[in-house]
Design a protein around this nucleic acid. Structure first.
Length: 287
DNA sequence: CTTTGCACCTGTTGGC
DNA sequence: TGCCAACAGGTGCAAA
């Protein structure tokens, strides 16, 4: 579900409620996540005050004096603020009940998400340490991307989704950014020109920023901290638009599975070849 | 080292 | 109506 804009939107939505609040108690209804919740998870948080909330890659970080609660939303997770007495619904796995009477509620049908309590330097955590630069920071630009692509024989689209290269770019925004950069998703990363990596880096920033501005993309599950969807879906140019007319040139949008993920592109705006392996099923946005 | 494919889960959808 | 296969905003890990 969530890529960087959705995680960022979640953080911003939680911030006013969570910043400075004390966690009175923690209720866990399901410990089986991507990584099972450690025994004693609740006690590691109860009574602690949240100093601030921020984000690294797709992780939500709730920072306390000497520890950090690190939450990943996986494919189907969400964090919402509800009133303390709100009865739990299906897949409401974890509650943080705050001294304000509000409750931070973690819901995740597929349970690909995770929650870790990290003591000490958060950036040194094994899940964070290997991560690449933040796409919206000055640490990421055309030159960074150019350097990262040299000698790579992977196609650019899966490379963009590799968090060691750059974090936060998932399946939707990878296709969207390549469309705006006018680069074919199957183009080999190592063969990109300086101009192309420049355009891709700029497109990534532009697309992510635009998505954040409207609260992210909701396809099916995603809701922000208030339970509302994001509206970037209306601004998607290729994702889930198979066979529909390109909004720029009218050509029908193409779709193909690439590295087990759906890839969408405009064959006219993004000229290039797809390797001629077996065609796979196509599934447009019927809605 | 890089690249590829699987696995983890539940829910929804489309075709027969 | 029912059943089943395919697919879904992620990503660590093992195998090649």
């Amino acid at each position: 579900m969530p890529e960087l804009p959705e995680v960022e939107t979640t953080c911003r939505g939680l911030a006013p409620t969570v910043t400075g609040a004390r966690i009175l108690r923690v209720t866990v209804r399901e410990r089986r996540m991507r990584w099972p919740l450690v025994s004693g998870f609740e006690a590691l948080l109860a009574g602690r005050r949240i100093k601030r909330i921020h984000r690294r890659a797709k992780y939500v970080l709730l920072e306390m004096a000497d520890r950090t609660l690190m939450i990943h939303l996986g494919m189907s997770g969400s964090l919402r603020i509800v009133a303390g007495e709100t009865p739990p619904r299906l897949h409401d796995h974890v509650d943080l009940v705050l001294d304000s009477g509000d409750c931070v509620r973690f819901n995740d049908p597929r349970r690909f998400g995770s929650l870790h309590v990290v003591q000490g330097n958060i950036e040194a955590h094994p899940l964070l340490a290997p991560l690449g630069p933040e796409p919206l920071s000055a640490d990421f630009d055309g030159a960074t991307l150019q350097r990262a692509t040299r000698g790579r024989r992977v196609a650019i689209k899966p490379l963009l989704m590799n968090a060691k290269i750059v974090v936060g770019v998932g399946n939707i925004y990878a296709s969207e950014a390549l469309f705006h950069a006018r680069v074919h998703p199957w183009k080999l990363a190592g063969r990109l020109s300086v101009e192309e990596t420049e355009r891709i880096a700029s497109a990534i920033k532009a697309v992510l920023e635009a998505a954040i501005r409207v609260g992210g993309t909701t396809l099916r599950d995603y809701v922000n901290a208030e339970g509302n969807p994001g509206y970037f879906r209306q601004k998607l140019y290729v994702y889930e638009r198979t066979d529909q007319a390109c909004l720029v040139c009218d050509a029908p949008i193409s779709h193909r599975v690439q590295g087990q993920r759906s890839t969408y592109w405009c064959p006219q705006c993004q000229p290039g070849r797809t390797p001629r392996t077996a065609r796979r099923s196509r599934r447009g946005a019927a809605q």
